[in-house]
């Protein structure tokens, strides 16, 4: 009798924690700070066990003062450390966005290349469940808009670990956009060994296909895969690209896919206006116009603050049925 060996799985939460722990073991200048990261083990338990292993010098509970501690992080990075700054959620990074953009992102340029800022700003981004307009928003396009930042957004455990390790090692400020609803999800475990990292700026084809390209990031990749399964039943062969990195953007992988499928739908949980999908479709239109059989379509959140009511929330956030519909529309197959 043969026993089939199940692939080992871990949660995104564990992958993120492992990434931080490994980098903290390797580099004594890496430290974590944020609200509830130490004694509470993280508001969403992402920093579980880190205080115990690394002590309170390197795992620091801050007061609720985002502008302050983001700025403290930037200063510490200028001073030669490699801070990981956790925002309890990226909604609260709005308190600190000035330090992220005006201090972290621009200083290398303004100093003629002298003042690099090796810092990671990380935390959950996008909509959570039923927490209303002030606690549910995707900031991908806000940060990706700005030169001087790298912006990364993992989907599964491999992404989470490989990209976070890369972000911590990167000499530049990296905005690392996680997703609360993915924290508890299990995925195939990343390769073992502390040297596994993923390059920032490289997308990943999660599912190859020939009829249409779906380009998304974070939780939308999961919905894209669901939609692809659904569409496969109708004979539509979908390619799913997991962007992983929003700045820099892996245009080569996207273009190559579009060259093959001639149809593209972009996916994000953010608002449609000036979103990541707007940038993707502009790039594809500028460079791949001759390869397109139809205009690029965007699947996004509705252009409204996120409502609390269950029925309205369902309408506001895009999920796989909207993706299925968009694919049919882009193929004129509706």
């Amino acid at each position: 009798m043969t026993v089939e060996k199940m692939p080992e799985t871990i949660t995104v939460r564990e992958a993120l924690r492992d990434a931080m722990a490994e980098e903290m073991r390797q580099n004594p200048n890496v430290f974590l700070m944020g609200e509830e990261v130490a004694e509470y083990q993280g508001a969403y338990k992402v920093s579980q066990g880190l205080l115990e292993e690394f002590g309170s010098k390197r795992v620091i509970d801050t007061p609720i003062t985002e502008a302050g501690f983001a700025g403290v992080g930037v200063g510490a990075a200028f001073g030669g450390l490699s801070p990981i700054v956790e925002f309890m959620t990226f909604n609260f990074s709005m308190q600190a966005i000035d330090q992220i953009i005006n201090s972290a992102a621009k200083t290398l340029y303004m100093s003629g290349g002298q003042m690099g800022c090796p810092i990671v700003f990380r935390g959950p981004n996008g909509s959570a469940a039923r927490v209303g307009a002030q606690h549910s928003q995707c900031f991908a396009s806000w940060y990706a808009h700005c030169p001087g930042l790298k912006v990364v957004s993992p989907y599964n455990a491999i992404d989470a670990k490989g990209l976070l390790k890369a972000a911590i090692r990167d000499p530049n400020p990296v905005v690392f956009l996680e997703n609360e609803l993915l924290y508890g999800q299990r995925f195939e475990a990343p390769p073992s060994g502390s040297d596994f990292i993923l390059p920032i700026g490289k997308a990943h084809i999660e599912r190859p296909g020939k009829d249409v390209t779906l380009v998304g990031f974070s939780i939308m990749v999961g919905y894209a895969l669901e939609a692809a399964e659904e569409l496969a039943k109708e004979g539509i062969d979908v390619e799913v690209i997991n962007l992983r990195s929003l700045r820099p953007l892996d245009l080569e992988t996207i273009f190559e896919s579009v060259r093959k499928t001639n149809h593209c739908v972009t996916l994000e949980e953010g608002f449609p206006y000036a979103g990541i999908g707007s940038e993707l479709s502009a790039q594809i239109m500028e460079h791949m116009f001759d390869f397109l059989d139809a205009p690029v379509l965007r699947v996004t959140a509705k252009d409204v603050p996120l409502p609390y009511a269950a029925n309205l929330e369902r309408l506001a956030i895009p999920r796989s049925p909207e993706i299925v519909q968009a694919v049919k529309n882009v193929l004129y197959n509706a």
Binding site: R130, V131, G132, A133, Q134, H135, P307, Y308, A309, L312
Partner: peptide
């Protein structure tokens, strides 16, 4: 009070 659009906090 907010027609269900705000929730507990709003």
């Amino acid at each position: 009070y907010s027609k269900g659009k705000g929730g507990s906090m709003h």
